[in-house]
Design a binder for these strands. Structure first.
Lengths: 243, 243
DNA sequence: GCAAAAGTGTTAAAAGTACACCCATGC
DNA sequence: GCATGGGTGTACTTTTAACACTTTTGC
């Protein structure tokens, strides 16, 4: 904080959401279609301006989450991703956007019903490959979100946020495989995740699908970090590029 | 970004700096004494409001860096740490602050000469222990900065940012030991850091101090991430608490 | 029985850990 | 020589990775 009593030019503060989920064993992100200029008709991250003088940033993120998709806030991971403030990122003027990263378990369907024109889940591959152009610098924000998620799978129990309250170990494996884009050995994975203290806890139930032996069910344990970590094979952790 | 053309209430955007360096084998942070209310006379992070309509966030951080301490921007690590926007964090009104983390090699002395009333390096222990009360939520920001630095030592070449352009392996070890607050075996550390591809590169020179065998000098290599990582012993990576 | 998914055992290679030891310097 | 910090060797333990194998289900 500086010590002048000169009054600086105010800027507009927006909150944008990168909401990830797993659908069809793919990492997908929730996008809305913009109804107004600039970038009318383009896909964009859900988000909006900070609502009033006393609204916390995290509260604003939660509010947007309710408006755009209606996800029950209880079982949902939400963390700050970064702040994007390049002077020319919004043609209307000076808008600084605080991006939040949300992770949700597999959800029925986009539920376009509420605020945004049309909301839809999109595979992140379509965005990183550039086939689906986005508004503003939202492609960069999503790329940072992917890298954050990939990295946190290694050291935190973030993968459980992609899962239902109870899940099998192969559910968990699918999360790692989809987000990292790799194949893992199910047998070694099975033991590795169970060896991490407080990562997952067995519950007294099984899940039976059509074929094969029923699988034990687990819940997320109390751990906030993973020791030892689940290392990403050949993993590269590039730094994020916030502006 | 939301689609209304209603105009939201503007907020003030500040940029604060967490500048770390190593002095006397201690992790220290640069603090200034506030000259005005609120928190007049308290220690605070250097920082200030965003200067004008076209100033980039990172540019603002660089500007503050020049004003408060004058560090040559060339050899200096600077990254975004997080954004702090609790509604009541500044009694004057709504101020959202984007914090940046800077890492500098050991510097001569605080150089209070420029903008801030008095700038001084302080051991971070004095802050985390609560002996040195800070303005605003700056204690939380510093705590997040410490955790960020500790974590990045494992996976990135951040430690070299604490060192001069050329350094010995035991210089590097002192960084790890001071930031992590642990003791490492010099012999195993010596080999471990050299085994990480592109982490450090030998230069054709030695350093001789008063006693002992001269040490080889190294420079930072081209790596942006460390594979394999330098694991933190018994390391716990708690999540950050940005608001 | 057969296919499929879950879960267990085993083994060889790799990595980490502890520590004895040698090297090059200043005094 | 001796103390000091730099650097190497090595034996031991632990972790990983690859994959054969057994178990439990649906059909």
């Amino acid at each position: 904080m500086s010590d002048e009593n000169w009054s600086p030019p105010p800027v507009l503060l927006a909150v944008d959401l990168v909401i990830f989920t797993l659908r069809h064993s793919q990492l997908q992100v929730l996008l809305v279609e913009r109804g107004i200029d600039p970038y009318r008709g383009r896909a964009a991250l859900p988000g909006g301006f900070l609502n009033n003088d006393s609204e916390d940033l995290l509260a604003a993120a939660h509010r947007e989450l309710d408006e755009e998709a209606d996800l029950d806030a209880a079982r949902l991971h939400l963390e700050q991703l970064g702040t994007y403030g390049a002077a020319d990122r919004d043609p209307r003027g000076r808008v600084v956007s605080v991006a939040y990263l949300a992770i949700a378990p597999h959800l029925p369907e986009p539920t376009a019903g509420t605020d945004a024109a049309g909301a839809a889940w999109r595979p992140v591959d379509a965005i990183t490959s550039g086939e689906l152009p986005l508004a503003f610098d939202h492609d960069v924000i999503i790329a940072d979100g992917i890298e954050r998620a990939r990295s946190k799978l290694e050291h935190t129990p973030l993968a459980t946020a992609f899962c239902e309250p109870t899940f099998t170990i192969s559910d968990l494996q699918q999360v790692y495989e989809a987000v990292w884009g790799v194949d893992l050995d199910p047998r070694n994975f099975y033991r590795k995740v169970q060896k991490v203290p407080d990562f997952i806890r067995p519950v007294d139930a099984e899940r039976r699908v059509t074929k094969g032996r029923p699988a034990r069910l687990f819940t997320a344990g109390p751990a906030t970090s993973l020791h030892p970590p689940i290392p990403r094979p050949g993993g590269t952790a590039e730094p994020e590029g916030q502006r």
